[in-house]
Design a protein around this nucleic acid. Structure first.
Length: 592
RNA sequence: GCCCACAUAGCUCAGAGGCAGAGCACGUUCUUGGUAAGAACGGGGUCGGCGGUUCGACUCCGCCUGUGGGCUCCA
């Protein structure tokens, strides 16, 4: 999870000014990292220091020390940092030669390694403040006193240069801002993110659970979470039928021969579970749906006339994920992809990509996601398939993005070995970005399964194949939705849309009538007929984030009205039942 | 998988080498109340699991499982 530069992003300053703020904070944070390393070296003179860059929302520095840092160490480090800041030492840049750098940092093996990796033609510079010198390109703030507000956050292990075969260093994370108000605001945002944590809300709203006895990364959906999920799925299906997809189903396991042919056993085995023995034959849980959809394609001879074929499936796959990476709904071992495979002719490629983009944005828009980051990943050094197809596909992806006036970054060489792709990240209500959508060409599987179609020339041709998932996985997407809405689902998604609250027992029958009227119109209402006080019922409905609370007592009963309270705490007062239904129907339509 | 931390009632959490605690939830009874908690009483625990140290372990140590923050990877 990354909290981006929210302050800068959210206000109405122009792009240049935002970049200015970002650059200023990078200098500030980078400088704070230096000051932190300075403080650590004072406390642990024997510490070996790694790297200490700014990040999107803070900074870190990696250290090798003889024992793990404790919370008390962090306090001491922070105290020394404050002294350094109070001392207002200037940051001084020096350009030195390689030997000078090696001599200066001779005690620091990690720094020596970094020096060795600097290309010979590049200048080497150091930054010094007080007695601390670090190999560094800069830039920095003028002096330590400019670090107006900072805090240290957590300690974590981190491999030297991200390589798990190299030593694990201890990383201290912190953040810094230009004013303490800005720091406060950032910390408040973190607090808000914690309140919206889908794992906490999942329990509070009784949406889902995971259990040690079931297994890590395996999600159980409770009735309310199941309701939200099925609404999302129904909408997904409707949209796909409307956009010309055929929906299919495939089994959860397949014989080893299938995975041999697909190449998964050769290239994806670390993501697959051990085989099970069925009548002496090996079967594997599916990590992907593609081979099954390919079987559908191959179940008949295909003519150019019937292409494109678009097979969609909410397909549940199982992948081995290393225990340390599992996280709530966001990273699990069993998940349902909104998968589809498109088989088409070369001349259809671009239209198909456009179709996927349009479908994507229509769907994401319905959930209130309007802020995207788009990445186009091109051919890596090692690849399969012929160059011409790669170029055609890559051009089609780029052209489709251009046609829809979408900004994107190009990740040169970042594609998979089997094809170029577009990835889309969405930003949620807190400005955090999540990878969901991926549109990926595949030049490998059609080859391996020898897919063909007969062209108008009577010859056999190889179809283009595109994998695509829009919401990615149901689990992750539901997790994102929970956090995006903070658990307060819009009416169309809310598992319980209205709670009718009778004030006294004699109002229960009327409350049931109101409920029936609502469910008669397709809504999802409940009646809270417990022998409890209205105040308690309102409190609980409020905490369950139910959109509509309908209080009924003597007055409502005699006039055929309901007193409407919204979860925003707005009290609409008594409204005729028909008026309420109209209002709710409008809200449903607008998906707001 | 690796580093660090954590695991006590259904939930959130306090506690501590010598009889296991609170709030909420749950059950019973009383209360029929007009927009965020009515009251009383009650049931509920192999203190994550297995070993070890000790007269004695929920507490200290080791291993395992799970969770959290990271690294790496990813839908």
């Amino acid at each position: 999870m990354v909290l981006k530069e929210d302050m800068a992003r959210r206000d109405s300053r122009g792009k240049e000014q935002i970049q200015e703020v970002v650059a200023m904070r990078q200098r500030l944070r980078h400088s704070a990292a230096h000051v932190m390393a300075d403080a650590v070296l004072q406390l642990f003179p024997e510490a070996k220091i790694g790297i200490g860059p700014p990040t999107d929302d803070g900074f870190y520095y990696d250290f090798e020390v003889s024992r793990p840092f404790t919370p008390e160490d962090l306090e001491h480090i922070e105290a020394i940092m404050r002294e350094r800041i109070a001392g207002d030492f200037p940051f001084q840049k020096e350009t030195i030669d390689r030997d000078g750098a090696r001599e200066l940092l001779g005690e620091q093996p990690y720094k020596l390694e970094l020096i060795d990796d600097i290309p010979p033609e590049e200048p080497i510079s150091t930054y010094r403040h007080n007695e601390f010198v670090d190999l560094c390109q800069g830039p920095h703030v003028e002096s330590t006193g400019k670090i107006a507000a900072f805090t240290l956050q957590t300690v974590a292990g981190a491999y030297w240069r991200g390589d798990e075969n190299r030593p694990m260093l201890q990383r201290i994370y912190g953040t810094a801002f230009e004013t303490s108000a800005a720091l406060e605001e950032h910390l408040k945002l973190l607090e808000e993110a914690e309140k919206r944590d889908h794992r906490r809300l999942g329990r509070q709203l009784d949406l889902f659970s995971v259990h040690e006895e079931v297994g890590p990364g395996l999600v159980i959906w409770h009735p309310k979470g199941g309701k939200v999920r099925s609404i999302v799925e129904d909408y997904w299906r409707e949209l796909h039928y409307r956009r010309g997809y055929d929906l299919v189903y495939s089994p959860h396991v397949g014989r080893s021969r299938l995975w041999q042919t697909s190449g998964h056993l050769d290239f994806y085995s670390e993501g697959m579970y051990s085989p099970m023995d069925v009548d002496g034959q090996e079967y594997y849980m599916k990590p992907m749906n593609c081979p099954f959809h390919i079987m559908i394609y191959r179940s008949d001879l295909r003519s150019y006339r019937e292409l494109p074929l678009r097979y969609g499936e909410l397909g549940t796959v199982y992948r081995y994920e290393r225990s340390g990476v599992l996280h709530g709904l966001m990273r699990v071992r069993g998940f349902t992809q909104d998968d589809a495979h498109i088989f088409c002719r070369p001349d259809q490629v671009e239209d198909e990509v456009l179709g996927v983009l349009d479908l994507t944005f229509e769907l994401l828009d319905a959930f209130g996601f309007t802020d995207y980051e788009i990445f186009l990943s091109t051919r890596p050094e090692k690849f399969v398939g012929d160059l011409e197809m790669w170029e055609h596909a890559t051009r089609s992806l780029a052209h489709a993005l251009d046609t829809r006036n979408l900004d994107y970054d190009v990740d040169e060489g970042g594609g998979a070995f089997y094809g170029p792709k577009i990835d889309i990240r969405i930003r949620d209500a807190l400005g955090r970005s999540w990878q969901c959508t991926t549109v990926q060409f595949d030049f490998n599987l059609p080859e391996r399964f020898n897919l063909t179609f007969q062209g108008s020339d009577g010859e056999q041709h190889r179809p283009y194949m595109v994998h695509r998932a829009i919401i990615g996985s149901m689990e992750r997407f539901l997790g994102v939705l929970i956090e995006h809405y903070g658990g307060a689902f819009p009416l169309w998604l809310a598992p319980v849309q209205a709670v009718t609250i009778p004030i006294a027992d004699r109002h229960v029958d009327y409350a049931l009538e109101v409920k029936d009227a609502l469910s008669g119109q397709g809504f999802r209402p409940e009646v809270d007929s417990r022998k409890e006080r209205m105040n308690l019922k309102i409190r609980e409905a409020q905490m369950q984030k139910v959109p509509y609370m309908l209080v009924v007592g003597d007055e409502e009963m005699s006039k055929g009205t309901v007193s409407v309270r919204l979860r925003s705490e707005e009290n609409l007062g008594p409204i005729a039942l028909s008026g309420l239904l109209d209002r709710m129907k409008d809200e449903l339509r607008s998906r707001s």
